[in-house]
């Protein structure tokens, strides 16, 4: 049996966790078994609709105690769900919670762990999973040698196709230790598209000359329902918040479209974005290294090009 852990934010299941659910169903199909899901803490999500992602049963622990995140508490709860359900393969989505839980769970279950999987396992010769390495510059095929296995799926790496189906819901009451971590406060921007989950990202670099010109980035982003990002020096000088910094030392993302404006495409920047499906580059320097990694581009002055692009998108979206 395959068990997928569905991570929540404010009572909603994260988009990336739904990808993990569909992936779990994919693994289950390959291995002729079923995929079940685990959810910790009260939820607003209609759990039976997880059937649309190929999940047959949901183990739902609705205890308020599980609202605050603590990797020790969560690991214990997941371990009990694994024992109860007899799961052999545990799947999580590569987000902030899984990054803390999965390594602990690996030790607890004596299960080999693959962080950042990008494809379904290859079972023709053992159990091998393809994952990102060298910050998106290569892949490794990792052989998991233990009976129990943990796969942490990269975000935006698995395409979700919905099916017909209803999942049954089974209440689950784990016995967990008291948390040693007290959450003092949590500060989240709401209403914005999350950079890590966004399917379109509009990003700006030093070529924009200053924060007063960022409307060229944000206007396009809001038209397309996109998230915004930036290069490291832009965050370093405070033109944009650090959470927007992508690259080797920032966030690594893999949207369907990465639209880079006035960014040179230094190797450390590319490391965070080169898994994007389509890359567009606007740069006045034809020698900018980014053009080598791009699918589409314009060599030109962004201050002339961008207003025209924004106008064309407005026209397309019929919001002139």
């Amino acid at each position: 049996m395959i068990l997928v852990f569905l991570d929540q934010a404010d009572g909603e299941i994260k988009k990336s966790s739904l990808e993990a659910a569909a992936y779990a169903a994919g693994v289950a199909k390959m291995m002729n078994t079923t995929a079940e899901a685990l959810i910790l803490g009260p939820t607003k999500f209609n759990l039976s609709t997880l059937g649309n992602y190929g999940i047959t049963k949901v183990h739902a622990a609705s205890s308020e105690v599980l609202t605050a995140f603590d990797s020790q508490v969560y690991t214990t709860a997941i371990q009990q769900a694994v024992e109860k359900s007899g799961a052999e393969i545990i799947i999580l989505s590569n987000n902030s919670s899984a990054k803390a839980i999965a390594p602990r769970l690996s030790i607890r279950l004596k299960a080999g762990l693959v962080m950042g999987a990008v494809a379904l396992p290859d079972t023709s010769n053992g159990f091998i999973i393809k994952k990102n390495v060298f910050s998106g510059k290569a892949f490794a095929h990792v052989k998991v040698e233990t009976t129990k296995k943990i796969i942490v799926l990269e975000q935006n790496a698995f395409h979700v196709t919905k099916t017909e189906g209803t999942a049954s819901i089974e209440p689950f009451e784990p016995t967990v230790p008291a948390s040693k971590i007290k959450v003092l406060s949590s500060n989240k921007t709401t209403g914005e598209v999350l950079l890590s989950e966004a399917s379109i990202v509009i990003s700006g670099g030093r070529g924009l000359k200053g924060p007063e010109n960022w409307h060229l980035v944000t206007d396009l982003a809001s038209l397309l329902g996109a998230a915004t990002a930036c290069s490291r020096p832009v965050a370093d000088v405070g033109w944009r918040p650090h959470k927007e910094h992508v690259g080797q030392t920032g966030l690594a993302i893999a949207p369907n479209l990465y639209f880079a404006i006035g960014i040179s495409g230094a190797i450390q920047h590319l490391a965070g974005v080169n898994r994007s499906k389509v890359i567009v580059v606007i740069n006045k320097d034809p020698e900018a290294p980014f053009f080598k990694a791009a699918d589409y581009g314009i060599v030109g002055d962004l201050f002339e090009v961008m207003p025209k692009i924004i106008a064309a998108v407005k026209k397309l979206k019929d919001v002139a």
Binding site: L113, A138, V142, K143, E145, D295, Y296, I298, V305, M306
Partner: peptide, 29 residues
């Protein structure tokens, strides 16, 4: 041993950039 790397792989090379003239940005859209 929990896991081992059986092989590495480089991503496929990009087909090359399709450039659009700066005079017609709407063509890019």
């Amino acid at each position: 041993t929990y896991t081992s790397i059986s092989a590495f792989e480089l991503p496929p090379a990009k087909a090359g950039v399709k450039l659009v003239s700066a005079d017609t940005p709407e063509e890019l859209v």
